[in-house]
Simulated scan of single mutants.
Amino acid sequence: MKGEWADPFLLKDGDDYYLYPTKDSKGWLYEKFHVFHSKDLINWDGPYLALDLNDVEWASSRAWAPGINKFNGKYYMYFSAEAQIGAAVADSPLGPFRDILGRPLITKDQYQCQSIDADLFIEDDNQPYLLWGQGKCWIVPLEDDMVTFKTEPVLLSDQLYRNKGADPIMTDNGIYNEGPHLQKIDGEYVLTWSNYDTRDPRYQICFARSGHIFGPYESPEDNRVTTPSEKFFGTGHASMARYEDGWVLCYHRLIDPETTVLRETCISKMEFIDGKLIVNVDACLE
């Protein structure tokens, strides 16, 4: 996809795909959320305006990293704005989305981490779960109103381990930083996240698996998802979607790490090889 787009969330709805990215800008102060539409992940139409922070009472800038899913016939967007997380709803995946609460769902630093990067996972039994956080990853089941926590949130980043019985990943170089995303693949929960900082060329996507949604999550010793590349750097903040007979990973990368922190979005096929999740960043769908 051409242009300066980051933090992509890819939603498969029937035979259609919808992409909700952050519009990259100087200072990352942009105030609108957009959505693209595709049938094949190669040809896209849009962008369409999904949500404008000018219509949100409690925020006016830093429209970042939305997470979207379909629940009971409606589409719910959990969006970051000014380091807080809001909830919005629409009748169509193209929007327009409207703010549900008129206030943040999760306020700034409310759970001892930066309140950004929300992800909405719908379990097989139709139970919705909200994930979020930079520095820490939280997960909580939601009531059907999609804005009430069913229980106290669980600190999921404390449930990430290198192999069974090892120390938590938080204590070593595989540290959780941001961008959690959860899918269920072949009966297992697969969690991806990004470590390092998005402006760092080492920024990369990691993963872990679990048989239970609250963990513990185990990963191989080298849990990097995106392959090293001589051409592309800063690959991170990913989401997954079914594609043909497998899955794809949608992520961003630095356009030119030597001159700018602006990013672009790309999509690559995922492979599971010898217990590892592998994505070749030199082979994007085109």
Rank of each mutant, 00 (worst) to 15 (best):
M1V: 13
W5K: 07
A6I: 07
L10A: 01
L11V: 13
D13P: 14
D16T: 13
Y20G: 09
P21N: 03
T22Q: 14
K26F: 04
W28Q: 03
L29H: 05
E31H: 15
E31M: 03
P47Y: 13
P47I: 15
Y48F: 15
L51C: 12
L53K: 07
N54Q: 11
V56M: 12
E57C: 13
S61C: 08
R62Y: 13
A63C: 11
I68F: 12
N69G: 10
G73C: 15
K74C: 14
A83C: 06
V89G: 01
A90G: 13
L94Y: 09
I100N: 02
P104G: 11
I106K: 01
K108E: 13
Q112K: 14
Q114N: 12
I116C: 02
D117T: 07
A118S: 12
F121H: 11
I122H: 03
E123F: 10
E123N: 15
D124C: 08
P128A: 11
L131I: 05
G133M: 06
G133Q: 04
W138V: 08
P141Y: 00
D145I: 14
T148G: 11
F149W: 12
F149G: 07
P153F: 04
L155F: 11
R162P: 09
N163D: 04
A166S: 15
D167H: 01
M170Y: 12
D172R: 05
D172M: 06
I175N: 09
Y176W: 05
E178W: 02
G179T: 02
P180V: 10
P180T: 09
Q183S: 09
K184N: 05
K184Y: 10
Y189C: 03
V190R: 12
L191E: 03
W193N: 06
Y196V: 10
Y196N: 07
Y196D: 09
D200L: 02
P201F: 00
A208L: 01
R209M: 06
H212L: 08
H212I: 02
I213L: 12
P216S: 09
P216G: 03
P220R: 00
N223D: 07
N223Q: 05
S229A: 07
E230M: 10
K231N: 08
F233M: 01
G234Y: 04
H237I: 04
H237Y: 03
E244Q: 15
V248R: 07
L249V: 05
Y251Q: 09
H252R: 01
R253H: 12
D256L: 01
P257H: 00
E258L: 09
V261A: 00
L262G: 10
C266D: 13
I267C: 08
K269C: 08
F272W: 10
K276V: 04
V279A: 05
V281I: 15
D282S: 06
